[in-house]
Design a protein around this nucleic acid. Structure first.
Length: 333
DNA sequence: AATGCGGTCAACCGCATGATT
DNA sequence: AAATCATGCGGTTGACCGCAT
């Protein structure tokens, strides 16, 4: 079945918005709201634009309290952590950063943050992998060597990330020591950034779009701001007291077997039968651990993830099977 | 001064999903 | 149940700008 176009594409204006168009759209929405129908809205106000275009313009630019640029270091951390944890789900990431739009964050990631992460790791020290905001030019006397390392590391990190995503390792266990207030991913309707130490208001409620997450999608709750864990179905889970763990509710047996497999794959990925190269990559990751004192956003370790999850699972009285089912099935681990 | 190149970002496109008929 | 429609999302594009040559 084909889809009817939302508008007459041949006869609607495209491209940058004029101040007059902005003013029309803004004035109308501020007075009347969107009316629940973006498609009809441009006709109502005499704009020769596609409804989708109006919606995007409003959401990304005209809407009140939108922030552009000037991402703080903490926002960087949150974006990086969430990206590595859940991937390119920009709307979810944006929901944790009041005033930021998914488009903004996406652009910021692709144009700056990713380069900081992947390109700037080896800047000041030859084997450094830490996040840096300064440029990444290499010393001229060691160009070939460092170039090689950088490209390898970039590739490895990208592959590592892809690998983790493909493996369904969207779990935050890799960030269990992240000192940042891990943004809670609350059930739709009450997604709140709880950030006691952050500039971001902990009163800010970001209303999620209706179809952002499936009801079965797991909720990841940090225990740093409290020891209550909650699943999407509203089940409150007590007793997981820890200041170092971000909860992943997986049964011990399951996590052990799966993580062994993942570890093996990671080993293959990192070593790939090339001893020297593998050593470099491993060194890089290890150094990332060592240098995390100031940045701390990256996985504090991938290596003891298994033990973390194991201890989590064994020390709790959680209905692990239930949680496992809820957590695992959406990702088809 | 002209040109090329890369970075940035607003906007578009197509697809997925949920709601409605 | 199927068809239709609106919305939301992420990937991609292209215009613009600044810098290097």
């Amino acid at each position: 079945m084909g889809r009817a176009p939302c508008c007459d594409k041949a006869n609607v204006k495209k491209g940058p918005w004029s101040p007059e168009e902005d003013e029309k759209l803004k004035a109308y929405i501020e007075e009347h709201g969107t009316g629940g129908n973006w498609i009809a809205l441009p006709r109502k106000i005499g704009l020769n634009r596609c409804g989708k275009s109006c919606r995007l313009r409003w959401l990304n630019y005209l809407r009140p309290n939108i922030k552009h640029g000037g991402f703080s270091e903490e926002e960087d951390h949150i974006i990086c952590s969430l990206y590595i944890s859940i991937g390119s789900r920009w709307s979810i990431i944006a929901a944790q950063l009041p005033g930021r739009t998914d488009n903004d964050i996406k652009n910021y990631w692709h144009t700056k943050l990713k380069k900081k992460l992947l390109g700037g790791r080896r800047r000041e020290r030859p084997h450094s992998c830490h996040l840096s905001s300064t440029d990444s030019k290499e010393p001229s006397n060691d160009i070939d060597h460092n170039k090689g390392l950088q490209s390898l590391s970039t590739s490895a990190l990208e592959r590592l990330q892809l690998h983790l995503q493909l493996q369904g390792l969207h779990h935050p266990f890799a960030f269990h020591n992240n000192p940042l207030p891990w943004p809670n991913l609350l059930p739709p309707g009450e997604r709140i950034l709880q950030s006691q130490s952050s500039n971001i208001s902990n009163e800010t409620v970001v209303k999620p779009p209706p179809s952002t997450m499936s009801p079965k999608e797991p909720v990841l709750l940090d225990s740093m701001n409290g020891d209550i864990m909650e699943s999407f179905d509203g089940t409150t889970l007590n007793g997981l007291s820890s200041t170092t763990t971000t909860a992943v509710l997986i049964s011990e047996q399951y996590s052990n077997s799966k993580l062994n497999a993942v570890e093996a794959e990671l080993h293959d990925l990192l070593y790939g039968g090339q001893e020297d190269r593998g050593a470099n990559e491993l060194d890089c990751l290890k150094e990332m651990d060592g240098e995390r004192e100031s940045t701390n956003w990256w996985s504090n370790n991938l290596y003891d993830a298994k033990s973390q999850i194991s201890s989590l699972g064994s020390s709790s009285n959680l209905p692990a099977d239930l949680m496992l089912q809820q957590y695992v099935s959406p990702y088809d681990l």
